Simulated assay, not measured.
Amino acid sequence: MTSHPALKKAIATLGGQVKLADAIQTSQQNVSNWLRTGKVAPDKVILIEKVSGVSRHELRPDIYPPDQVA
């Protein structure tokens, strides 16, 4: 099983996989799959950020790299 600390934090913030899934209009099975694979669906990253406060950079650093600080 792949660890995904940012997604786990979002799940904990909302109170469980089902509540996160409901908040972003997807299924609990999708959330479980993202935990297993370590990859959140790209079209759900911004929604998860909005409902949980977990940054897009944490959720998908491959798509949303951290801002460069000069």
Rank of each mutant, 00 (worst) to 15 (best):
25 Q>C: 03
48 I>L: 02
2 T>F: 12
38 G>T: 12
24 I>K: 00
27 S>R: 00
36 R>T: 06
36 R>N: 13
11 I>Q: 01
2 T>K: 14
15 G>I: 01
19 K>F: 06
51 V>S: 04
59 L>M: 05
33 N>Q: 15
34 W>A: 03
15 G>W: 10
16 G>R: 04
64 Y>Q: 07
29 Q>V: 07
60 R>M: 03
2 T>D: 01
45 V>N: 08
6 A>M: 05
56 R>D: 11
23 A>E: 01
48 I>T: 05
3 S>A: 15
13 T>L: 03
69 V>N: 04
54 V>Y: 00
30 N>P: 01
41 A>L: 07
50 K>W: 03
49 E>M: 07
32 S>A: 14
60 R>G: 06
28 Q>V: 15
37 T>F: 04
9 K>I: 10
25 Q>R: 00
51 V>E: 00
51 V>M: 04
22 D>Q: 04
58 E>G: 09
42 P>T: 15
70 A>D: 07
12 A>P: 08
69 V>A: 04
26 T>M: 06
34 W>V: 01
8 K>Y: 01
2 T>H: 09
43 D>A: 11
3 S>I: 13
39 K>F: 07
45 V>A: 08
16 G>W: 06
67 D>G: 10
59 L>Y: 03
38 G>S: 11
15 G>E: 10
39 K>N: 15
29 Q>M: 12
16 G>V: 11
43 D>V: 15
32 S>W: 07
20 L>V: 13
62 D>P: 04
49 E>T: 14
52 S>Y: 00
42 P>R: 14
56 R>V: 08
49 E>W: 10
56 R>L: 12
1 M>F: 09
31 V>S: 05
9 K>E: 15
4 H>K: 04
3 S>E: 15
51 V>K: 09
44 K>G: 02
32 S>P: 07
21 A>S: 14
31 V>H: 08
52 S>A: 12
17 Q>N: 08
68 Q>M: 15
11 I>C: 02
54 V>T: 11
31 V>C: 09
40 V>Y: 01
31 V>Y: 03
67 D>S: 10
51 V>Y: 08
66 P>H: 11
63 I>V: 13
44 K>Y: 02
50 K>T: 09
15 G>A: 04
17 Q>W: 09
26 T>G: 04
54 V>D: 00
6 A>P: 03
33 N>Y: 02
16 G>C: 09
39 K>S: 10
62 D>N: 06
30 N>T: 07
70 A>L: 07
29 Q>R: 11
31 V>N: 07
66 P>Q: 15
45 V>R: 04
45 V>G: 06
37 T>Y: 11
6 A>H: 04
11 I>A: 08
19 K>E: 14
5 P>G: 01
66 P>C: 13
40 V>N: 02
10 A>S: 15
41 A>P: 10
7 L>N: 05
22 D>F: 01
21 A>F: 12
49 E>V: 05
39 K>Y: 14
